[in-house]
Amino acid sequence: MTAYFLPVALIVVSNIIYQIAAKSVPSTLNPFASMIITYAVGTVVSVMLYFLFNKGGNLLQEYQHLNWAPFVLGIIVVGLEVGFIYAYKAGWPVSTLSIVQSAFLAVALIVVGCLLYSEAITWNKIVGIVFCVIGLVCINQ
């Protein structure tokens, strides 16, 4: 049970801190300059955690298993980070930006799940989409 919920808790706590940090990036700092520091720190932390959790690990051996995904993630994650920073610079409140983007994302991922992974679109998912749309209408009033 812990292995099931612990990653979700990590995501939620990390996302809360992420949103606070993204909103706190100085408005005078270019978002891409901010990303250079962000990813330099992320690289150092990732290397440290890799060796902490993989005693005697070999990064070169790990990289033999690479495919396209980490490269695309590297590009896309910059879009995510910079998108949030620009949205906060444009005046989005921290209390609504994440909710709005999550609602759109949830609906889009239902379609992606169906088209790319043959996941069923159930009545529960349709009701969820309706609630997302209702939520978006309510939050933007």
Rank of each mutant, 00 (worst) to 15 (best):
F32D: 05
T38S: 13
Y63K: 01
I139S: 04
P93M: 05
V72T: 06
G135I: 08
P26Y: 05
L97C: 00
N30Q: 09
P7C: 10
I139N: 00
Q61S: 15
I129F: 02
V107F: 04
S14R: 01
A3T: 13
G135P: 11
Y117R: 14
G56E: 00
I139D: 01
G57A: 01
T122D: 03
A40Q: 10
P26A: 10
Y18R: 11
N58W: 00
H65W: 09
L6T: 12
F131S: 06
I126S: 09
I20N: 00
F71V: 02
V13H: 00
L59V: 08
K125A: 01
G42Q: 02
A87K: 04
T38R: 13
Y18F: 14
A120P: 11
V100P: 00
A22H: 10
F51E: 06
G113V: 13
L29D: 02
M48Q: 05
L136P: 10
A69L: 13
T122W: 03
I16V: 15
L115W: 12
G83W: 09
V12T: 08
N15S: 14
L49C: 01
K89I: 02
L116M: 15
V111A: 13
I75V: 14
Y50I: 03
Q19W: 09
I75W: 05
K23N: 08
L97W: 02
P70T: 08
L59N: 02
N124T: 10
N124V: 09
T38G: 12
Y88S: 01
G74S: 09
N140C: 00
G83S: 05
T28H: 12
A21E: 07
L59D: 05
L80D: 06
F32Q: 03
I110H: 02
K23R: 14
L52W: 03
I17V: 13
L60K: 12
F131Q: 04
P7F: 04
L10H: 02
V82Y: 11
P70G: 08
P31S: 07
V133Q: 09
L105G: 15
I37N: 04
V78C: 14
S34G: 15
I121M: 07
N58I: 06
F104Q: 07
V13P: 01
L60T: 13
S98P: 07
T2Y: 13
V25E: 05
C114L: 12
Y50M: 00
T96Q: 03
L73M: 11
I11P: 07
E81K: 12
T96A: 00
V8D: 10
L109Q: 08
V133C: 12
N67L: 02
V137Q: 03
A108T: 14
